[in-house]
Simulated scan of single mutants.
Amino acid sequence: MEKSQFKAFVVTEKENNFIGEITQRNLSDLPNGELLIKVHYSSLNYKDALSVSGNRGVTKNYPHTPGIDAVGVIVESEDSTFSINEEVIVTSYDLGMNTDGGFGEYIRVPSAWVVKLPKGLSMKEAMIYGTAGLTAGISILRLTQLIKPNDGDIVVTGATGGVGSLSIAILNKLGYFVTAVTGKESEKEKLIELGAKNVISRSEFENTDKRPLLKPLYIGAIDTVGGTILENIIKTTIPGGVVTCCGNVASPKLDLTVFPFILRGVTLIGIDSQNYPMSSREIVWEKLAGPWKSEVLLNSYEEITFDKINEKVELMLKGKLKGRTIIRCS
């Protein structure tokens, strides 16, 4: 029998301010779902930072427990596909957005959201990956289906962030020559350690250039920021190249002509990890646990507890948080 109360990091709206505090919650307050999971680890993502800060585009109603990632052990199951004490991963869907998320000791979710923890991956490693790892994995899966290591160089933007750093480490392991784009000059050595063969400043891609095409440089790209940087990457993609797009922190807008697509045959692939099909999601997790697993990457993280979440959220919103941050929940 599980205890009826548990500890969680809960965000409450107070006089138009959003306050995140550690509090006691009741299991009976959790939403409906076939699986009750005792959470061992969660991780900090940009959507979590937005939820903590009261962004209504992410979370509509407060009080709320954020955390779009969780890994733990099943303690109650109404689905015969899953067993008590089975280790499982839950990422994306509505977890941590409008459904109570991983910043608590327990979650209750639909079984359709749940992936069994693959062999070869610990619970801690699963959260070092988290949604960022899943997003990077989907991007790499799509990229590697169309281009091979000998085809040319790959450029990765937002290189010091979760998706960027994970992408660099995995692509390097698969034999691709990776150029990292970052605004953090001090992180050059770290990016090289992860596997980047070349590191260039974000400012090289930030200048607006109205020409419809630029000098072709890269056969592929994983872009995490959008805006002008994505525009210029598309314009510098080699004929037949592939660009994946999964973020809009710079801007959601693109000012482009169709010329990169009809004169160079560039392919632009949008990446949606939130509602990615379960069958494909399981394939990506198996690869992250097996052939794509990077020991360099999995040794690069910071582990915190609930009491440090506010501090890390503030750093993330200022663009000053480096690498992956995981949260020990129990």
Rank of each mutant, 00 (worst) to 15 (best):
E13S: 05
N198I: 02
V88K: 06
L143I: 05
I107M: 07
Q274L: 10
Y176R: 05
Q145D: 14
Y41N: 02
L263N: 13
T81P: 03
V249L: 15
T160P: 12
L298F: 07
V75D: 10
I326Q: 06
T325I: 15
V114L: 06
K188D: 05
G220S: 06
G158S: 09
R324Y: 12
V313I: 15
I89G: 01
K148D: 10
F9N: 05
T160G: 09
G240P: 00
T91R: 02
E295S: 14
L230H: 07
I68Q: 10
R202V: 11
P252M: 04
L141M: 15
A136N: 07
K210G: 00
I200V: 13
N207M: 11
G104V: 08
S77R: 08
G130W: 03
G183Y: 01
L317K: 14
S122H: 03
G290L: 06
V11W: 02
S80T: 15
S186D: 13
V10G: 01
L50V: 01
V249M: 13
T179V: 12
Q274W: 07
F6C: 08
A132Q: 04
S279I: 15
E76A: 14
P252Y: 06
S186R: 14
K235V: 04
E295C: 05
M316Y: 11
L217P: 11
K253D: 12
N45R: 12
V109M: 00
Y106R: 07
D272H: 04
V242A: 08
I37Y: 14
P149H: 07
S280L: 15
R264H: 13
E78S: 15
S4P: 01
G183H: 04
G183S: 09
Y129T: 05
K38F: 08
I222W: 02
D100S: 09
P118W: 03
T244K: 02
V284G: 02
N150I: 02
V39M: 07
S92T: 15
N232S: 08
G133A: 06
E231Q: 12
P110Q: 09
G96E: 13
Y276R: 09
Y41M: 04
K235I: 02
L254A: 02
N172S: 10
L321D: 07
R25P: 00
I200R: 05
M123P: 02
V109T: 09
I107S: 08
N85F: 12
V156A: 05
I84P: 06
D272Y: 01
G265E: 03
N207K: 15
D69A: 13
T59K: 03
M1A: 13
S77E: 13
G120V: 07
K215D: 12
G175A: 09
S43I: 00
V115G: 03
K3A: 14
F259L: 15
V155Y: 11
L288P: 00
V199A: 04
T257C: 03
I154N: 02
K3L: 09
S42A: 15
R281P: 00
N207S: 14
T157Q: 00
P260I: 00
M127S: 06
A132D: 13
R142C: 11
S28R: 01
G162H: 11
T228W: 00
R56F: 13
V114C: 04
V284K: 01
I19V: 14
A169E: 09
E105H: 08
I238C: 10
S139F: 03
K235E: 06
M123H: 01
K312I: 00
N207P: 00
V156G: 09
L317Q: 14
V39Q: 10
E187F: 00
